[in-house]
Design a protein around this nucleic acid. Structure first.
Lengths: 259, 259
DNA sequence: CACGAATTGTTCGCTATGCGAACAAAAATC
DNA sequence: GATTTTTGTTCGCATAGCGAACAATTCGTG
């Protein structure tokens, strides 16, 4: 707003400043910011307190947040916003029967993920019941560097995009076996690119391995990754490559042909 | 803007008009509106084309939608907005272990739902693998009138709120057995209120029954419904009441004590 | 407990963002 | 091909939203 310069300069591309601010506040809610006051929201969204206050008043008026004392918390109505993607996107629905088939055939949980700002986001899932396994929420995300799907999706990026990702990511280990060296990760992504599938073993969660294959659109771009996960106590790497990989590749190929 | 009247009249409560418009556009995306042009978005959100255009430009600039010709479609980034609720809310995390226990004990899928504008919205799930069952997405919603959780949640509303709901709802049958008579539904909600749990049989989906019990906060209000669903080919109503109900009530009670 | 400092929430004069109407361009219909 | 309808874009104008100032609240210290 106040950063514009020269007189007579054409206007910046038009937009809706208040919308941008409000969305910044919504995205600022997190596990460490379960509720926010006007001041906290302003700080988290890098806007003035007056703007933050207006946004929160509008969000409250529309039912997206509720007020508790001077704090604001998101309500379930917020879920409608995420629904916009699910109701619009055909990919999860097209994929579901393929995931179900793969799950039934291999008796392991199967999921589909897309890349979103350095994260692998689950958009579809077929889950097999295990005593230990917990429900993975569609919409949940995993860091790309530590997940089979994430590495599969990174493998489709141009080298410079992979490098940009590697240079701006904070590599938090998620298990004692998480690879966090950027050079090593670059090599791993290249390996995935060469091999055409991705496997990680205990990097995301001890005791678990995961395998992912690409789902491509008709331009050959990888638009999603189809993955399977299993406990290494039950399934070794060789068995995964022998039994899981052909089925995943076949399912991914069938799905790719629909895109 | 132009609807304000008398001079010297105090300002309306302050807000952020552009945010309201942008959120209306986001919510307008649906299965019948998978993509929208500027004109379609303006119509769907009941705003001017110029405003719709500004909103879509901002949403595109921030990565929430992408442009395809003159149409705009949501991107996975939209999921972050729904995340605001999941990352803030403690209920799904508190509930998960209870759902897992109930699922393991009863060997049927168990879920937790909250009421959101006439819909029952899943916020947590423990799923048992069945050849027929498909994955129910957290965030997915069911009409309250046709679901066990929905009726359980409606039962906690005041009579006038139930009546308002019944008078403004379009009762679309979801199976040949869906109850769609408002008077009948009012009686069913009252029955649920008296009985303290809700059961539906084949109203949502042929061949399936579902049972739900209330999860209450310390004020006694029903803040969520815990439910189980099973195929009637395997489980009859009497068995459900004999075997499922005690476990659901115990789990719901344990969860209620944490709230 | 009182006081001062820091933080937070609210207000209001001012201006530039966002408005609506008009116009340009594209699409649809005859 | 001409006309009509619909859609996308522009721009003069005004009010919604801005930032700074102020009021209120909270926190820290003596």
């Amino acid at each position: 707003m106040s950063d514009d310069t020269g007189a007579g300069k054409p206007r910046a591309p038009e937009g809706m400043g208040g919308l941008a601010k409000g969305l910044a506040i919504i995205e600022a809610f997190s596990e460490t910011r379960r509720e926010m006051t006007v001041a906290k929201a302003a700080q988290a969204a890098a806007i003035s307190r007056a703007s933050a206050r207006r946004c929160l008043l509008t969000l409250a008026e529309l039912g997206y947040v509720r007020q508790l004392g001077s704090a604001y918390l998101p309500t379930p109505r917020m879920l409608r916003l995420g629904d916009a993607f699910f109701e619009s996107s055909t990919l999860p629905q097209l994929a579901q029967s393929h995931l179900d088939d793969a799950r039934d055939q291999l008796n392991e949980s199967v999921s589909l993920a897309v890349l979103e700002e350095g994260n692998s986001v689950f958009v579809a899932r077929a889950e097999v019941t295990r005593p230990v396994s917990s429900y993975v929420r569609i919409g949940a995300k995993l860091p790309a560097y530590a997940s089979a799907t994430g590495r599969m999706l990174l493998a489709d990026l141009a080298d410079e995009d992979v490098d940009r990702y590697l240079s701006t990511t904070d590599f938090v280990p998620l298990s004692p076996k998480t690879e966090t060296d950027p050079d090593r990760l670059r090599d791993l992504v290249r390996d995935v690119r060469a091999r055409g599938y991705s496997v990680i073993c205990e990097e995301l969660e001890l005791g678990m391995l995961a395998m992912a294959v690409p789902v491509r659109n008709r331009n050959g771009r990888t638009v999603a990754a189809l993955s399977i996960s299993a406990a290494i106590a039950r399934v070794g790497l060789e068995q995964a490559e022998r039994e899981f990989l052909p089925v995943l590749l076949a399912r991914a190929d069938a799905l790719s042909r629909m895109l």
